[in-house]
Design a protein around this nucleic acid. Structure first.
Lengths: 217, 217
DNA sequence: TAGCCATGACCGAGCGCTCGCTCAAGTAGC
DNA sequence: GCTACTTGAGCGAGCGCTCGGTCATGGCTA
């Protein structure tokens, strides 16, 4: 009952509250914090990374850290959010660049796998860490994941029926979209094997053939 | 420094030490412990499951628990081991049963996806939990994973060149083996989407077509 | 200009608690 | 009485997070 009257100031791009009043400062500082946190999470994982480590890496006191974020879970959400945005932006970019060419799909797959390669650490982190999000946020993250997959589904959809691609129903294409998405991410989450046994160009070649169905003619 | 002179008694099927001298008892009790632990890990995850919860569920005191296992990490390893063995046995079984038929590969894929469905919880757990294993054990677990994938690679290899399958080099087939493996596991780790949007029969149908390259003719 | 105060970002010792693990004291069976 | 096994209170390191406080800044008043 009237336990505290510290108003909280939600910041434009997300629902994570803060005590700090200047929104520009919040954005800047959070950027700092998130960058350090991502690195630490990649290196040590979520549970072994302490809030003190984060504060130190971001050049804050723990006290200050908690002015910008109200719990370690908040931090986790911010990290997931940020990574997903980055992946999504990257994928959208390469899809736009390769639209409407002759062998668009093959090009898109190549570029997508390059993205997965560049962001391998981040993709792996997402796989490891999503499970620790509280339910409300997990949903929003999985929705983001769907958006990325949808980019492929839509690309496939726009090809369906044209040139030598057969016409396929949305349902099927949706799953194929997921397949492409996952086979790209596999370059990250099975890297302990695939990055040892294949060069990225080999990987791209084989996976493209596989997806385009050339393997078994 | 003679800190402790409690001899440790490694037990046949693994390298995890115990204080208990009767190996049969160890096997029996560990079975109990592992079964309970798997359930708890599936429900709460590794970090939120406390050793006290495990002891309680397995009807032990914590003290006794630590007679059979020397750390929570030991337990994690035993769990991973056990699950992998189960998956491997199941996969090997269905592969043997479907060998040498007409459309062996399609049959094998179907059966494999059934296994993934039945063991979805376990597969998901493996994905979540492998990262927390100490390095020495992680390697051994990843090796097990390779063995499962190799079952597919070998099946593919034995088909290569026969009937209407083209001849492909080992290298390519190896990656295809991984693809099959992962696309089956995807039924588990993307279940939040695929198990909502597809029946398992639809999933099997589309993935089989996809793998066999029928999708893009 | 000098004195005063309000503001809010920043600080870090330390609180409360959890959880993996231990060990002295038991009991059961032979 | 000896060995094999069991017990659970207790330990203490380490964690997330709080909260009383400092200090730089800038505006107000005379």
């Amino acid at each position: 009952m009237g336990k505290q009257e510290n108003k909280e100031y939600p910041v434009s791009d997300n629902e994570v509250p803060t005590q700090i009043k200047n929104p520009d400062l919040v954005r800047e500082r959070r950027r700092q914090i998130i960058d350090s946190t991502v690195k630490l999470f990649i290196k040590h994982g979520y549970h072994k990374t302490t809030t003190r480590m984060i504060a130190k890496a971001a050049k804050f006191s723990i006290g200050s850290l908690y002015e910008y974020v109200s719990s370690k879970e908040d931090l986790l959400y911010l990290v997931c959010q940020t990574i997903h945005e980055e992946v999504q932006v990257a994928v959208e970019k390469v899809m736009k660049d390769t639209d409407k060419g002759e062998e668009q799909l093959a090009q898109a797959i190549r570029q997508y796998i390059y993205v997965c390669d560049k962001m391998a650490d981040h993709i792996l982190l997402m796989y490891q860490v999503t499970q620790f999000l509280p339910e409300k946020w997990k949903k929003s993250i999985l929705l983001n994941e769907l958006e990325i997959t949808d980019i492929f589904t839509q690309a496939l959809s726009s090809l369906s029926g044209k040139s030598d691609f057969p016409k396929l129903d949305e349902h099927t294409l949706n799953l194929v979209g997921h397949n492409i998405s996952v086979l790209g991410q596999m370059w990250a989450f099975r890297r302990w094997h695939v990055q040892k046994e294949f060069t990225i160009e080999e990987y791209i070649k084989i996976q493209t053939d596989f997806i385009l169905g050339l393997i078994f003619k």
